[in-house]
Design a protein around this nucleic acid. Structure first.
Lengths: 254, 254
DNA sequence: TTCCCGAGTTAACGGCGTTTACTTCGCACC
DNA sequence: GGTGCGAAGTAAACGCCGTTAACTCGGGAA
């Protein structure tokens, strides 16, 4: 009848259960408490059984971090559903959503956005690394919902602002490098099925995008890790003022 | 003759040796390879002996991160020794120095600047946390060389720019919070023995300082953790352009 | 000279990731 | 309806790990 056997159903169910308990441990007790034995204990099975589902603890953490990305994407999408204003408002909403998600999920944030290298979690879109796996393999890594959300909200803004934003004085040495990024970004928009007029992908727009991400990430990471030089009780207002500033610089305000 | 006994000398020497080997492990194989047993092995000693020097592995990592801060401070000071230009150039030099240190010491950067909470490594200056230890204890935590370096280079710039920087339009809701930060910052300058005219500590200046740190930290962390949305081969030029932009916004350029 | 105390050791505990060899049992096939 | 394969799970073991407790031993103060 159905193309999925009972065995596959069960397998998928416990696979999900494993990551559910893993995540609970991550949230409750931190990354190093996410232990194969602890997960197995909570599931009422023995640790080696987990190797039927994951190659190693590291593999499990990697999948977990992908789950987290997907959940973040879903939350951001949901947040944005209520916003029907202009494109800039949506971008603001996503930024605020990202911040409050990070502050309420510090452990998840740490795993996904502050683990060096291969994690691949947060490269929202392209990921042109890896030496190309003999071609013919299209889906490659994963859905990358998060990239879609970010690009989906930034895209329209870029398209709209294509010819009304003031040129932000790009240093000449940067233009060559930005051209590469332009190609990458165009490919990403394409991959995620967002149509984007080529003239909207100006070097200025790419530069703007990079600055948005750098500042958003910086401010949020500083808050999550509590690495501000002194206690800033007004971090939320600081964040708002950063957004306002970015909007102003993008020449898209009001 | 000397106020320090032979015993104390030896103790200090091995204490240093322990952290030297710990650091080597951190750099070579990452944080989770910094193992009491591994350190002891390299020292030709057994693991429990380390408990004569540190309360726990966590304690050791904490001290190690303080060491790292001190080394970073030393490196930044050294870098700055060659700069005899205006104050802005020195700030630029420190920022560039911080970036290149982070890129050449990613593991150390991760330990000090991306470990949440108590680590206390990177709160460059004040650290008004902790419930005040009954007073009478002045030195409290540690030297905090890093705070001195940063403040020492930012201070003169703030003093100089006291009345020639354009007001950066601070949102009204921010001013109250910034007033708190002003006090904290003033206390920090005082603690580090840097004289600072009170009128130089305007809300604008504090706001500027926070933005500098947020952007510097953000860009550097993005590079270290490779979390840029796509591969930016031109990250160095992006960084330079960020510095230029910050300088321009501070109204202190040229 | 005596004796203390601190650096270091040995042995042990429980927990960890991972591998190997094994049981068990659902389910596809004849 | 029986047969057998393969997947899910287990038990035991290996070598790590942090940490504790009980000890040795020797340098230096009394």
């Amino acid at each position: 009848m159905n193309g999925v056997t009972r065995r596959e159903q069960l397998r998928a169910a416990t696979e999900l259960d494993i990551r559910r308990h893993a995540r609970e441990l991550l949230v409750r007790e931190g990354q190093e408490a996410v232990t194969l034995r602890a997960i197995a204990r909570e599931l009422g099975i023995t640790a080696p059984a987990l190797y039927r589902y994951y190659d190693s603890r590291e593999d499990l953490l990697h999948r977990l971090s992908e789950d987290i990305c997907d959940d973040l994407s879903a939350e951001l999408s949901e947040t944005m559903r209520g916003i029907e204003d202009d494109h800039l408002s949506k971008v603001f909403a996503v930024c605020r959503g990202f911040r409050s998600w990070a502050l309420t999920h510090p452990r998840e944030f740490g795993l996904v956005f502050a683990t060096p290298g291969g994690n691949a979690g947060a490269n929202a879109g392209v990921d042109a690394r890896e030496p190309a796996p003999t071609a013919t393999t299209v889906p490659a890594t994963r859905s990358d919902e998060l990239g879609s959300v970010f690009l989906g909200v930034v895209g329209p803004l870029m398209a709209e602002g294509a010819n009304n934003s003031p040129p932000p004085r790009i240093p000449e040495e940067l233009r060559a490098g930005l051209a590469d990024s332009q190609r990458d970004l165009a490919a990403a928009f394409n991959t995620h099925g967002i149509e984007m007029p080529p003239e909207a992908l100006s070097a200025e727009a790419v530069y703007m995008l990079l600055r948005w991400w750098a500042r958003l990430y910086g401010q949020v990471a500083l808050e999550v890790f509590e690495k501000f030089p002194f206690d800033v009780s007004h971090a939320d207002r600081l964040f708002e003022s950063m957004l306002e500033e970015l909007g102003r610089e993008a020449g898209l305000y009001r």
